[in-house]
Simulated assay, not measured.
Amino acid sequence: MDLNRIAIFVRVVEDRSFTAAARALGLPKSSVSRAVSLLEEDLRVRLLHRSARAVSLTEAGSIFYERVSRGLTAVTEAAAAVTDMEGAVCGPIRITAPVDVGVWMLAPAITRFVRRHPSVHVDVILTGRIVDLVEEGFDLAVRAGLLRDSALIARRIGNIASALYASPRYLARAGTPATVADLSRHQCILFRATRGRVIWTFTGPTGEERMELGGQISADDFSFVRRTILSGAGIGLVPPFMCRREIERGKLVRVLPEHSVPGAPLHLVYPTTRHIPHRVAVFRDHLLDHLNRYLDPAPKPPSAMALP
């Protein structure tokens, strides 16, 4: 049997489509279909049920796929292990992250990494969707908040705390709040509001203060909130690392500077495979070193742990 045909068959099964497999492999769809047909001729058995919308495994195809997919995985891991013995940092790396994290934190980190390792190609997908790393072929993901996927390993980076900012133009017009309670008399730019309301729990000199606030503008993207604050629309809650340059240039002012809102923990996660390619391990360690500069430190130093 032709091993290339077996590899194509496995890709069709995993992508659940001849079209998707052809796109991933960079081959014409007709070539992919022909390879699977020839494999079936070699085996003298039908492996796939074909329809206009999808493909599915026959009973024989299921048995064949279960065995050959394990074999191909072992071959891939063996090849990666041999390559890694040479210490080469080369090849593709796929990572996904929320848009804000990708734009403000990943972009400079990846720029430094590819300059240092010119034989690496980093493919970045920015989305608010929770991506299935194994199913969609990602090596790493940056995720904020609680983690529930027990099939992943997590390295905690730190916490995304936020603070209040406004433009000098807005404060000149509306005044500067002196207490948390004063915020109720201001236009607030809300992050992830529910029906135009948010509850912010501030940590300050006297402990915690909880405040429910409303506003005319709400968004689920910190970059949008930041831009709206800069335009003079009101007071908003944004991670400090997104405002450092504007503070230095006098375009933004921190409001209630002794108060902040503790943020969600940020993790770097990856599948629990037996062998992590050397390039991915080096990239992971580079990100851990770079990203924690933007965040409040985690309660404990980052360490590998299985998710609960």
Rank of each mutant, 00 (worst) to 15 (best):
Glu136Leu: 08
Arg284Pro: 04
Ala79Pro: 00
Val32His: 01
Glu66Ser: 13
Leu252Ala: 04
Glu212Cys: 00
Leu140Cys: 07
Arg192Phe: 00
Met305Ala: 14
Gly232Met: 10
Val134Leu: 10
Phe113Ala: 04
Thr228Ala: 10
Ile199Gln: 14
Glu66Gln: 14
Leu27Asn: 02
Ser56Met: 01
His278Pro: 06
Lys251Asp: 13
Ile217Phe: 15
Met1Asn: 10
Leu287Ala: 09
Ser260Gln: 11
Gly128Tyr: 07
Ala264Tyr: 01
Ala21Thr: 13
Phe18Thr: 11
Arg143Asn: 00
Leu140Gly: 07
Leu48Val: 08
Ser231Pro: 01
Arg5Asp: 15
Gly232Lys: 09
Leu183Thr: 07
Phe224Met: 11
Met1Ser: 14
Thr201Phe: 00
Ala172Phe: 02
Arg23Gln: 15
Ile247Phe: 05
Thr176Asp: 00
Ser37Thr: 14
Leu147Gln: 15
Ala154Val: 02
Gly175Phe: 01
Ile247Val: 11
Arg244Lys: 08
Val101Arg: 01
Val120His: 06
Val269Arg: 06
Glu14Tyr: 01
Pro265Met: 07
Ala35Arg: 04
Val36Ala: 05
Arg67Gly: 00
Pro98Glu: 14
Leu27Ser: 01
Thr273Phe: 07
Ile95Thr: 06
Pro92Ser: 05
Gly61Pro: 02
Tyr165Glu: 04
Arg67Leu: 12
Met85Arg: 13
Ala97Cys: 12
Val32Gln: 01
Val89Glu: 05
Asp84Arg: 08
Val55Met: 02
Gly158Asn: 12
Ala163Phe: 04
Thr206His: 10
Ala281Tyr: 04
Arg116Val: 02
Gly71Asn: 09
Cys90Glu: 15
Ile229Pro: 00
Ser218Gly: 13
Arg67Asn: 09
Ile6Glu: 13
Gly250Lys: 05
Glu136Pro: 04
Leu256Lys: 05
Arg173Asn: 04
Ala174Ser: 14
Pro28Gln: 12
Arg53Lys: 15
Ala35Asn: 10
Pro108Cys: 08
Arg129Gln: 15
Gly175Gln: 01
Arg210Thr: 15
Val103Arg: 11
Gly215Pro: 10
Arg11Gly: 04
Pro297His: 10
Thr111Arg: 13
Ala154Cys: 01
Val55Gly: 02
Asp42His: 14
Val134Thr: 13
Ala281Asn: 10
Glu208Lys: 11
Asn4Arg: 14
Val124Leu: 14
Ile229Tyr: 00
Thr201His: 03
Leu126Arg: 11
Asp42Thr: 11
Ser260Asp: 12
Val101Ser: 03
Thr203Gly: 02
Val124Gly: 06
Arg293Trp: 08
Ser184Ile: 11
Phe64Leu: 10
Phe64Tyr: 15
Tyr270Ile: 05
Ile276Glu: 15
Leu252Lys: 00
Pro168Ala: 02
Met1Phe: 12
Asp2Glu: 14
Glu40Thr: 11
